[in-house]
């Protein structure tokens, strides 16, 4: 392989890994909720759309960045409380499939409501990050991707710290390990759920801003969820580490596949290549990369 080819390969790979971090960020929102309630929260994408749309609309109304951020976060907290009251509480002890379908319904509500409130036009979102490529040893790397990866890493670190060092975070761990035992020792499940949904909302907000800045804030933003699902299959629904590594793999595979395999197949393969890779890996190694060996994938 010639040097230029190799540099190009590295460029594609690094670009893939960096966009993979953004997949990880979306996937982590799923993991948080899955760990505590065993639910695949399909509404995560809708939350992301809602967050980005609310934020960008507030900014366009003249609010400063931080005020818009805080207000959006407050709205997401309200959604978290609402979801716990109106959906999770009445469906407690229902099979996971039922809860999944409820989140599917929820995603319709949140997507519809977000666009009813803020309209359906496309908003440009400028976070003030330059997207000039920087040259690292002949390999061009997008500044925006770097910053996004940095933000995502900071987000993950603060989440881990939250769950390691705060009381409610430890409660979260307990609930994730054993829901029945947690209830038995008097942990208030309802409050943990509200906190977890709010945390997932925060993750959706950050991911929504990053993705919104890249793709524009519009309905299709909620489809980012579809990119996160193969990440979850790969990394395990219950593993934050799996979400990170899975995201990196999917990001890299998608970009490399698009560049090297796409032309052979006529292009457009990024809609399914991630799924194909995730499934292929699962067939070889049914327990996934990180998830606990569970009956789900036995």
């Amino acid at each position: 392989m010639e040097l230029a080819d190799f540099q190009f390969f590295v460029e594609v790979l690094v670009g893939g890994l960096l966009s993979g971090v953004m997949y990880s960020l979306v996937a982590i929102g799923f993991v948080l909720i899955y760990k505590t309630s065993g639910v695949l929260n399909f509404a995560q994408g809708a939350l992301l759309l809602f967050a980005a749309l609310t934020f960008v609309s507030l900014v366009e109304k003249g609010l400063p960045f931080w005020a818009a951020f805080a207000l959006t976060f407050a709205a997401l907290t309200l959604i978290g409380i609402g979801v716990e009251r109106a959906v999770l509480r009445p469906l407690v002890n229902q099979p996971p499939i039922t809860l999944f379908m409820a989140t599917l319904g929820l995603s319709y509500i949140i997507e519809g409501a977000a666009q009813l409130i803020w309209g359906t036009q496309v908003h440009a979102l400028d976070l003030g990050i330059d997207d000039t490529p920087i040259d690292v040893a002949g390999v061009f790397i997008s500044t925006f991707d770097l910053v996004a990866a940095g933000v995502a890493a900071a987000m993950v670190a603060s989440l881990l710290a939250f769950f390691r060092f705060t009381r409610i975070g430890l409660a979260f761990q307990a609930v994730a390990d054993d829901q029945f035992a947690a209830v038995a020792v008097g942990l208030r499940l309802h409050r943990v759920w509200v906190v977890v949904w709010t945390a997932a909302g925060l993750v959706a907000l950050v991911a929504g801003l990053l993705w919104g800045a890249r793709l524009g804030v519009q309905f299709s933003l909620s489809l980012v969820v579809l990119k996160a699902l193969p990440v979850l299959v790969l990394g395990g629904f219950d593993s934050i580490a799996g979400a990170i590594v899975g995201g990196l793999i999917i990001g890299a595979v998608e970009k490399l596949g698009e560049v090297y395999l796409g032309p052979l197949l006529g292009g457009g393969i990024e809609s399914w290549i991630a799924y194909a890779v995730a499934l292929a890996l699962l067939l070889v190694k049914p327990s996934g990369l990180f998830g606990r060996p569970s009956t789900e994938r036995a």
């Binding site: 979850l232 809609s271 049914p286 789900e296």
Partner: peptide, 20 residues
């Protein structure tokens, strides 16, 4: 080999692959 949500996600592959 897959169950529950893992299977559900894998059926999405059919959705995207066939449309593609």
């Amino acid at each position: 080999r897959l169950r529950g949500f893992y299977l559900a996600v894998s059926t999405l592959a059919a959705q995207f692959f066939v449309q593609w």
